[in-house]
Amino acid sequence: MFKREDALVGIVSVLLGIFVLVVASNFHETTMLDPAGPEGVPIILGWGILLIGIIHIAGALLAPKINEDKQAKWTKDFETAKPVLQITLVCILYLFLLEYIGYLIATPLLMIGIMWVINVRNVKSLLLTSIFTTIVLFLIFGVALKVKLPMGFLESIL
């Protein structure tokens, strides 16, 4: 049932459980009319998460040790996480720039950035896909559904 790496799950769960209990203890509105109060369910959840975390830590300590190169494993984990982190960075930049440069410019840049991360290097593909998709999405959401998409500095021009 348990693996050694579940110790990490256990530690995070214990920390989360403690966090929930500490924060929930500040929700003070219990009255005779509402016996459970706003803290009732969060406190039950906090204890539940804490308990499951302890179970995982205990289970991980009792789990059979597998002989493996920990350094190689962490390197492999990092390599597989790299594209995710890179795409996340591109998305965060998109979120920051969206209001300033507007949807029509930010979205093609988002798509180009994502495709670049996953090794698309053909400039024609990058441009065609990103521009065509942005136009279609803009027509559906901005024009047909009349969603007010952020236009950034283009708002003053258009």
Partner: peptide, 14 residues
Amino acid sequence: QALVAVIIALVFTG
């Protein structure tokens, strides 16, 4: 590969 970018853009827009 284009589908990944298109879906992320679609989801963000939606």
